[in-house]
Amino acid sequence: MVNTILIMAGVLMALGILLALFRFILGPDVTDRAIAFDVMTVSSISVIALIAYFAGRVIYLDVALVYGLLSFLSVVVIGRYIERGL
């Protein structure tokens, strides 16, 4: 029961990430791609947490945390670069 619900949740998350990937490929402008990348990585955090639950390992949550922080930094760097160069 619980596992079925969680697998459904995982499928929905994967569909959301696929839609964002569609915008990432399509996106007419670099800012569109940056925002699609942001959505993809934030959604991936919850996918990684779900994998951590299925594997039963706490250490994967640290992976999710570091992943989120790195994606935040990269998005901020892209934004700064677009605005005024490095």
Partner: peptide
């Protein structure tokens, strides 16, 4: 996960 899916739909 429903909200994550709607976020992907919205961005498209």
């Amino acid at each position: 996960s429903v909200f994550i899916f709607l976020g992907g739909l919205g961005i498209v």
